[in-house]
Write a protein that binds this DNA or RNA. Structure first.
Lengths: 255, 255
DNA sequence: GAGTGGTCTAGACCACAAG
DNA sequence: TTGTGGTCTAGACCACTCC
């Protein structure tokens, strides 16, 4: 029962060196060859031990340079539902989040006009093949990508209005509540469904996700009185954000 | 640029066999030795390819038996804030969730009286060392653990009331809103902060988490008019639940 | 060029499951 | 007993980084 494989023992040793401060964030570990001698095991066993710790997000390796103790930036907090409210400014909420965190934000957005897939059609309550405006976003803060998302809007509703193209015009960069308020279709509610999974290798690459870090996937639906008008699939590496939801209870006096 | 390591190519091949239905959920793969011959590579390379897919949650292996395609149960949905409302029944919400999913639920709860740690004290707005009631829950559905949580309540508030011990008395098994309503301290709001990370080996064991599945960690705070009365740290394997949040917007005219 | 991590090989031994 | 996955070894070659 008490037995542990060698690689796990070594991983535990190194882990303790990190938590006890002998290995500080950003510092470099001895090379794999040196670790082999130090622990008197073969290279594969050392590699297996290091792989465990990389998978836990404690180490990161760079080919040709070495293995280093990861230094984690504090995750931002994504406040809901506050983030959706256009308080003083109608700007999209990540601008405020970056500002309060003292980070510089960069947004890449591309919009294309396309037709609804089966999934999007059902989600938006329209027919397959109906025209939709699809926008892909990629948001980086201080050069680090923090989210990538795809967003679909019903073209029939926004066509000919000031918000027809989310990436240009007077309301570019505005939050969705402000945008739909501008065309007289106020958002009545937003629903989010959160899942978490490991990123694919492609996602890990484009979002610069260290191994061992999961991905939040948020399916967001914005409703108006006449039905959903915008849906988004938002991917956020879980080491960049925490998701906060504030849920006030209606007072029991009127029950 | 286009080069991929052998193990990645093999992993991709096997992955395609799964997505295209040649390997059905629950079915067994050829043994590692057979796969070596089939793909003309060494055992380590095959193992590396299988490790990738196990890490993605597509495969699971059992020593002495073989490697199998995992069959995933559909994740439940945890509806917030609805789940907190004591609609017809004051029962805790997982009972309803299990019922609608047609699963049998089993709850293990243990309460102890202890003192507040620094973290819990700050969280609850009390002093370090103040008396708290700590409850640990472990909820299983159809024999599969779906969450484990630790919950702290301010003893000064509940002492001497009908809800002093959350695990016994007339309100055992009731939701927190119902419980605090019963002592005349209605919950005015609930806040949740969600993070996701990979489980530790201990967590993976007790929650029966397959490798490659992250863990939701929810920090939940229940507020009354006079401040927080209960905080919980809830751990949920991300393949068991999706987290839904419904956020209606107050209409600009009234309410 | 020297040192680093990344990949791969061929083979050994072990623990576990099933007939 | 046979076949399975799990661990480990010793050594090779490659790609990358830095001097």
């Amino acid at each position: 029962m008490g037995w542990k494989p060698t690689y796990a023992i070594i991983a535990e040793r190194i882990r303790r060196q990190i938590t006890e401060g002998q290995l500080t964030p950003g510092s470099q570990l001895p090379s794999e060859r040196e670790l082999c001698d130090e622990h008197a095991v073969s290279a594969t066993t050392i590699r297996r031990a290091l792989a465990e710790l990389k998978n836990l997000g404690l180490l990161e390796s760079h080919q040709g340079r070495g293995v280093f103790v990861r230094e984690g930036r504090r995750p931002l907090i994504r406040y809901a539902p506050h983030r959706f409210w256009p308080q003083d400014h109608p700007q999209a909420s990540y601008y405020r989040e970056a500002e309060t965190a003292g980070r510089s934000v960069d947004v890449m957005a591309e919009s294309v006009r396309t037709t609804a897939s089966e999934r999007v059609a059902e989600w938006l309550g329209i027919e397959v093949g109906d025209a939709v405006v699809q926008v892909t976003y990629r948001i980086t803060m201080d050069g680090q990508p923090v989210s990538s998302s795809v967003c679909w809007e019903v073209a029939r509703i926004t066509d000919g209005t000031a918000i027809a193209d989310p990436t240009s015009g007077p309301h570019a960069g505005a939050g969705l509540v402000a945008r739909y308020a501008a065309i007289g279709r106020p958002i009545t509610g937003i629903a989010e469904v959160i899942s978490a999974r490991m990123p694919s290798t492609a996602e890990a690459q484009t979002l610069d996700i260290p191994s061992g870090t999961p991905l939040f996937v948020i399916e967001q639906t914005a409703h108006t009185a006449s039905g959903p008008v915008q849906v988004s699939e938002i991917a956020i590496p879980a080491d960049r954000y925490r998701l906060s939801y504030d849920m006030p209870m209606p007072s029991p006096t009127e029950e």
